[in-house]
Design a protein around this nucleic acid. Structure first.
Lengths: 126, 126
DNA sequence: AATAAAAGACTACAGTTGTAATCGAAAAGG
DNA sequence: CCTTTTCGATTACAACTGTAGTCTTTTATT
């Protein structure tokens, strides 16, 4: 049951499928062509690897395959976030946010969103 | 000038040096022995790789080397955080915190710390 | 002094990753 | 029908990783 490791390149492909699903290999190639200079073959390889890892599935449509994700983006991000925060911040988000704040400068909107989030939390558990 | 990639195993070694520095190879072996079942040779290899990557340095003390980090943990975490948040949350921390909150449940203390952080921010930039 | 233990250097080796090229079958074009 | 294009499948191949083992040189030990 261990989460299959998804490499960086694989992630970019998977991310396309999370946005637009199902999609054929050439759909993915098209979508990625705007911001990546990857050869078509490279993308096909990555799709194949994701299939082998059980991260995405496909169904044949005539000769082409239509691919789709087998895991939800939220689940993936939740897991990754947990391990990331665990690894670098002893599992606490506050220092992450603090560090982020000092370096990236939060916008007023960001801060308001955070406040709203906290207010919501306090309303839920009091 | 590209930040050298630090692998997971390498990170664990580096993390020891961030806590206790300078340290000899056997110091690191000792420290890691409590929570990792790594062979001494493995750790030596990792130290060597970190040196080659320019992530840590050392100075000879008689026959042994004393290793020390060449990059600050804060700098490393800042960079990693930025790329992590950029990759998974379009660069916004709020959704990260939100996702974290729904899954990991924040403690009252966590929330208070966040509030303090925000209050501080608002005081600084108003 | 002879030998064993210990340190770092070098070597090993399979699995993963990035980045494709080639191969065989099928479909589309002429 | 024969040729070219297009799919997916298979193969390639070097760099990076995890995980040590061997070699050489020192320094303890007996």
């Amino acid at each position: 049951m261990s989460k299959p490791d998804i490499s960086n390149a694989e992630f970019d492909v998977l991310d396309v499928l999370w946005e637009r699903n199902p999609a054929s290999a050439s759909d993915v190639v098209q979508t990625l062509s705007s911001h990546k200079e990857w050869h078509e073959k490279t993308i096909k390889t990555l799709l194949g690897r994701l299939v082998k890892k059980g991260v995405i599935g496909f169904e044949k449509q005539q000769r082409q395959y239509l691919y789709y994700p087998l895991i939800a983006r939220e689940d993936y991000t939740a897991q990754e976030t947990e391990s990331f925060v665990g690894k670098l911040f002893k599992g606490k988000i506050t220092p992450l946010v603090a560090g982020f704040a000092t370096q990236k400068t939060l916008s007023k909107d960001d801060v308001n969103e955070l406040k709203a989030l906290i207010a919501q939390w306090e309303e839920d558990n009091d």
